[in-house]
C-alpha cells in the first residue's frame, strides 16, 4: 500500500488535462448599428442594413465560396460531407431535397423552403468584404444576369430568400435566430438602396 500512496501524490501533481473545448468563433460578420427609422434611411444606411442581413448566417450559410454549405450560428460545415454538386442541389442521388423539403420540418428540425439549394458558385460571399459582396450581387456577370429591378424582386419576394425570417427550429426544437432586422425593414432597405442606384460606399 505504501507504493500506492506515493503514486497518489505524484499523479495528482503531475497530470493535468486541458479541455479542448471547441468554443464557437465570435460572430463578427455584421456590425451593430443604432436603431433608425427606416423612412429616414439614407442610401448608405440602407446599404449597411442590407449587408447586415446578407452577412447573417441565415443568408451566408448558403453562399459559400468553398462549395460546402454551412450550418448554425457558428457556420460550421454541413455535416456528413454534403456539398454543392453539379447543379447547386447536392449529389446525384443524395440531394439537398433528400432531407430539405419545401417547408421547415418542425419534427426533425430540418429547415426547408421552395427550391432549397446553394446560391450559385458565382454568388459565393463567404470570406468576402461587404463591398465585395455588394459588387457580386450587383454584377450581372455573377448574379445570373439580373437587373436591379430583378434583384429587388428576388430579394423581396423569393421564398428561399425570405426563409431567413421563417427559419424554423433546430434539431433540439429551439427556434433559429433571425437576421438583425425584420423582414419588412429588410424589404424597405432593399428598395431604398436600389431606388438610390445601389451605391457601394468605397471604404
Amino acid at each position: 500500500m505504501n507504493r500506492i500512496v506515493v503514486l497518489l501524490v505524484i499523479f495528482s501533481l503531475g497530470a493535468f488535462y486541458l479541455i479542448g473545448s471547441n468554443k464557437e468563433p465570435p460572430l463578427e460578420a455584421y456590425t451593430v448599428i443604432p436603431e433608425v427609422k427606416i423612412d429616414s434611411l439614407t442610401a448608405e444606411r440602407a446599404y449597411e442594413e442590407v449587408m447586415n442581413v446578407l452577412m447573417h448566417p441565415r443568408c451566408m450559410n448558403c453562399h459559400p465560396t468553398d462549395d460546402i454549405p454551412k450550418q448554425g450560428m457558428d457556420r460550421h460545415p454541413h455535416y456528413f460531407g454534403m456539398s454543392r454538386g453539379k447543379e447547386n442541389k447536392g449529389f446525384s442521388a443524395t440531394k439537398c431535397a433528400t432531407c430539405h423539403q419545401e417547408a421547415n420540418n418542425l419534427n426533425s428540425g430540418v429547415p426547408g423552403a421552395p427550391h432549397w439549394s446553394l446560391a450559385p458558385a458565382s454568388m459565393g460571399w463567404q470570406g468576402l468584404s461587404r463591398s465585395e459582396i455588394a459588387q457580386r450581387l450587383l454584377d450581372p456577370e455573377t448574379n445570373g444576369g439580373k437587373s436591379h429591378k430583378e434583384l429587388v424582386t428576388h430579394m423581396t419576394e423569393d421564398e428561399l430568400v425570405l426563409w431567413a425570417w421563417n427559419p424554423g427550429v433546430d434539431a433540439n426544437g429551439i427556434p433559429r435566430k433571425k437576421p438583425p432586422i425584420s423582414e419588412e425593414e429588410f424589404k424597405k432597405a432593399v428598395e431604398k438602396w436600389f431606388d438610390e442606384g445601389a451605391p457601394v460606399p468605397s471604404k
Binding site: 503514486l7 499523479f11 497530470a15 479541455i19
Partner: peptide, 25 residues
C-alpha cells in the same frame, strides 16, 4: 467536462493492483 477530467486523473480513484511480476519498487 473539466469536472469529469479532474475526477479521472490517475491517483484520485481507488487503486487495485491487477497484475504484478518481478520487482518494481
Amino acid at each position: 467536462t473539466q469536472d469529469i477530467r479532474s475526477m479521472l486523473e490517475v491517483g484520485k480513484g481507488t487503486p487495485f493492483v491487477i497484475q504484478k511480476a518481478g520487482d518494481v519498487d
